[in-house]
């Protein structure tokens, strides 16, 4: 059978390789971004003046500038200023993680503030130390509260990986571009690519919904 989309099978390895890069970069960035987001939120809520200034400068820079500009800074500008060469995938991971952390900081800080002050005082009153209060009282609740916001984050990160083609990473959009150029079928190729992005993101969001239902605690979701 010869249909308009048969050529895709011939290029399946190109698509698959690109797709794997996109998925890996997304998951690693969101994961590292979560760690950065938690640290930044704690710094902003509990840190001194200097810490808060540093945290906010970081967050504002990454939220307030285009992702492509950030990629250029970390892939071209900083390495050439300091005279070193950086692997594009590493540069991409650094930028996307920092970018994701800047957004997640906002979600997590909001969620931590939703863990009411009275619980923090109650935790103090039974003798828990500050780090224990964060670990056993604030963060477990904040993470549950923040899950719905992660839907945004995962979807937005998945789409952001497409920007990595500007620094030469062979992710899914870049792979599609190669196929489109070689087959002279841009319409079919990009339509297929868009469909894959949609299925991928939709699946991640469904999985997140399931996780949310699993870890949900009666009464805690009402805090949002």
């Amino acid at each position: 059978m010869v249909g308009p989309f048969d050529f895709i099978l011939n290029y399946s390895h190109v698509f698959i390789e690109g797709f794997i890069v996109s998925v890996e970069v997304t998951l690693v960035s969101v994961f590292i971004g979560l760690g950065l987001g938690i640290l930044a939120a704690i710094g902003d809520l509990y840190g001194g003046r200097i810490t808060r200034i540093i945290v906010n400068a970081y967050v504002e820079f990454f939220r307030g500038s285009p992702l492509i500009a950030q990629l250029f800074v970390f892939y071209f500008a900083i390495p050439s200023l300091l005279n070193f060469i950086i692997d594009p995938v590493l540069a991409g991971l650094i930028v996307l993680s920092l970018n994701s952390g800047a957004y997640q900081k906002g979600y997590i800080k909001g969620a931590m503030e939703a863990v009411f002050k009275d619980q923090v005082m109650a935790a103090m009153s039974i003798g828990l130390k500050t780090h224990q209060i964060l670990l056993y009282v604030v963060i477990p609740q904040a993470l549950r509260i923040v899950i719905p916001a992660w839907s945004n984050e995962l979807a937005s990160m998945a789409k952001s990986t497409a920007a990595l083609l500007v620094i030469g990473i062979r992710e899914f959009t870049s792979a599609s571009k190669t196929v489109a150029a070689q087959t002279f079928k841009p319409l079919e190729t990009y339509a297929f690519a868009a469909l894959i992005y949609f299925i991928w993101i939709y699946t991640m969001l469904k999985i997140l919904d399931i996780v949310y239902e699993r870890v949900k605690i009666p009464g805690l979701e009402a805090v949002i």
Partner: peptide, 30 residues
């Protein structure tokens, strides 16, 4: 503070923990 019990106007329970775990937290960690 661990030797001074405090009961608040609002119950201030840890909302992600069961009644038992609310009571256990200090016993385990403090």
């Amino acid at each position: 503070r661990a030797k001074i019990g405090f009961v608040f106007q609002d119950p201030s329970l840890f909302r992600h923990l069961t009644a038992l775990d609310n009571v256990k937290l200090g016993l385990r960690r403090v």
